[in-house]
Amino acid sequence: MAAPPPYRHTARRHLRDTVITAGRDLAIDRGWDAVRMADVAARVGVSRQTLYNEFTNKAGLGEAIAHREIDRFMDGVREALSTHGGDVRAAVHAAVTFVLTQAGTDPLVKAVLNSARGTDALLPYLTTRADLALAAAVTVLREWADTHLPRVPPDEVAVGAESLARLVVSHIVLPTAPVDNTADTLAELAQRFLDPPRA
């Protein structure tokens, strides 16, 4: 079977982006639980069937929204890490500061965390289904470590990266200190684990 023409691929990608944006905006306005596929379709100007063809169901659209948000956050983490090269403390401090600051001001994250009784169906992407965010964070941290920390064994990087990512997610869901204090603490932990004193 011949590949679809490029314009069809571009049009489909544009439709996906537009629908994801509409779903995100509606989730911010009224909470994800109150969003219906019909609402999203009406905002975009397409049929509900078009949405179902593209995302299967509302859960599929929710996952697409979560993926895009995670990718956006990871772009910032990647930039923060790379700015400081192999300086573990500075790089991790910058990355943690970026994530916690963005999460604290991002309207979608705030809407999800402030949903009544924590019932919002997007909340699991920060709790019981945080595997998507964790996997993305571990990938970015391992890419950075592969370039800047070649002397640290890969298995140690993997454990350190996942532990750090879990701690950051927990501070998004339940912050216990100012961002800078949390970034200081996690950067120090990262330095001890990923850049221990040489014998």
Rank of each mutant, 00 (worst) to 15 (best):
T147C: 05
A136F: 06
M74G: 03
L141A: 08
T83M: 12
V88T: 15
A42K: 12
G62D: 01
L123Q: 02
T101R: 14
H171F: 10
A137E: 04
G118I: 01
R192W: 07
D180K: 14
H171A: 11
R36V: 07
P197L: 11
L189C: 02
K110T: 15
L186K: 07
K58Y: 06
T128N: 02
S170V: 02
M37Y: 04
W32F: 14
R68K: 11
H84M: 09
D146K: 05
D131C: 03
S163E: 03
V40C: 12
N57K: 08
L61M: 09
A137R: 03
A11Y: 09
R89Q: 08
D71L: 12
N57W: 13
Y125S: 07
T119A: 14
I20F: 07
A177V: 02
S170C: 01
D39C: 12
D195K: 04
A64K: 06
S115K: 08
V112T: 12
L174M: 10
D180P: 07
A161E: 00
A66F: 07
R78Y: 04
A130N: 04
I65P: 09
R142M: 12
V40I: 05
V152C: 08
A91H: 00
G60C: 05
T128Q: 11
P197A: 01
A103K: 10
A59Q: 13
A3V: 09
R8I: 07
I28D: 06
A111K: 09
L149G: 00
A187L: 11
T139V: 01
R192G: 11
D75C: 08
V169T: 14
A137V: 03
Q191N: 13
H9N: 13
T119Q: 13
H14C: 02
R142Q: 14
